[in-house]
Simulated assay, not measured.
Amino acid sequence: MSTRRTSPSSEGILWVFWLLHLPQLCSTCVAFSLVANMDTLRGAIGNWSMSFWCVCFAMTFIIALVECCRHPSSFPFLWYNISVTYACYAALICLSASIIYSITYVQFVPYGPYRDRAITATAFSCIASVLYVIEVAGIWDCYELKEIFFYVHTRRSLLKVLETFVAGVIFAFLSNTSLYLHQLALEWCVAVYSICFIPAAVVLLLDLAEWKYMLPGPFSIFQLVLSLLSVLFYISALVLWPLYQFSEELGGQPQRPSDGDCRDKLTYNMCAWDQRLAVAVLTAANLLVYVADLGYWARQVSVGTEDQPRDSQEVYSPNSDIL
């Protein structure tokens, strides 16, 4: 017996989206504009944060336009999976920009109008991250998830979002190639981040579009092997990166220098030692996420099930009644 799926009216959802999208656009735009007007005092961290806020503004604007123009019955599940996934990433992006910008830049700006602008930009970035979290929670609450299966509602999806996001932040710090090009072991660490990021991103896209059913073998076995390899690779990176970056015997620098870009004052570039430490911390954090992912898929293989809608094992088909 088929279950009739229900959803809120398109007009109601549209108003909810606009009530969130408009302040999201305003918050990211204000944060971007305030930092852009700082001219030469903007620094590399300011440029990096601006790029994040600009991407969030542009993507939110595009999603808002699509919501206004598309018909409610047009690719409903794929679209909302994509929009919720973007909101998750946007929340993490704005939160990371707020933390990194305030810790590495705002506290060193001299007191005055520029410091006030930097603090205000950080505040609006925090507001934007909260608004994106509200959007994710709002979409989950608006739709009856017991009847409609959303990929991003599952634990495995949140783990993939975290894995790819943390890897993206690591890549941002690794834009300074002088951190690793002088040692083969450090180059291997960079290769690990790339090797693990690409399959995680591909799996995320496959599951978003529900293409996992096209794979030749069981999806849970594939994920278990992939997670196990990623854990092993990240363990090697967690050992080698700190060893070659902070061990004096291997050419590393155990303590933070007090000259160059690492002085306790405003500088254009982020301290290279701080970047090394950030990559080490993020490597450990992503290893924990991959271990959680490995534990999840080991349990799925042992039980022989995967995440399904809580009240229905029914897989969505295009011909089913959704309204």
Results as ranks from 00 to 15, higher is better:
residue 256 R to W: 07
residue 143 Y to D: 02
residue 16 V to K: 07
residue 122 T to K: 04
residue 234 Y to P: 01
residue 273 W to S: 05
residue 317 S to T: 13
residue 253 Q to S: 13
residue 158 L to G: 01
residue 87 A to Q: 03
residue 157 S to P: 02
residue 276 R to V: 00
residue 120 T to D: 02
residue 198 I to Q: 00
residue 134 I to K: 00
residue 29 C to F: 15
residue 102 S to G: 05
residue 180 Y to Q: 03
residue 210 E to R: 15
residue 72 P to G: 03
residue 217 G to H: 12
residue 13 I to N: 08
residue 33 S to G: 14
residue 6 T to P: 00
residue 144 E to D: 15
residue 52 F to Y: 12
residue 70 R to C: 11
residue 221 I to S: 10
residue 307 D to A: 15
residue 56 C to W: 04
residue 23 P to A: 09
residue 99 I to V: 15
residue 291 V to N: 02
residue 259 D to Y: 14
residue 40 T to N: 09
residue 261 D to E: 15
residue 63 I to H: 05
residue 96 S to G: 09
residue 175 S to Y: 01
residue 153 H to K: 11
residue 297 W to L: 03
residue 95 L to C: 14
residue 66 V to Y: 12
residue 126 C to Q: 08
residue 125 S to Y: 00
residue 15 W to M: 07
residue 206 L to R: 03
residue 270 M to A: 14
residue 300 Q to T: 03
residue 150 F to Q: 05
residue 308 Q to K: 09
residue 59 M to F: 13
residue 65 L to H: 04
residue 149 F to R: 08
residue 89 Y to T: 08
residue 118 A to T: 02
residue 242 P to Q: 06
residue 280 A to Q: 07
residue 54 C to Y: 10
residue 179 L to H: 01
residue 73 S to G: 10
residue 223 Q to W: 03
residue 61 F to E: 03
residue 155 R to F: 07
residue 167 A to N: 14
residue 257 P to N: 12
residue 136 V to F: 02
residue 299 R to G: 02
residue 130 V to P: 00
residue 172 A to E: 08
residue 176 N to V: 01
residue 311 D to G: 08
residue 278 A to D: 06
residue 145 L to Y: 03
residue 246 F to V: 10
residue 133 V to Q: 02
residue 151 Y to I: 05
residue 135 E to I: 00
residue 94 C to F: 04
residue 249 E to G: 14
residue 118 A to I: 04
residue 200 A to M: 07
residue 166 V to N: 06
residue 237 A to S: 12
residue 18 W to A: 02
residue 203 V to M: 03
residue 140 W to T: 01
residue 180 Y to T: 04
residue 128 A to R: 02
residue 67 E to F: 06
residue 148 I to K: 11
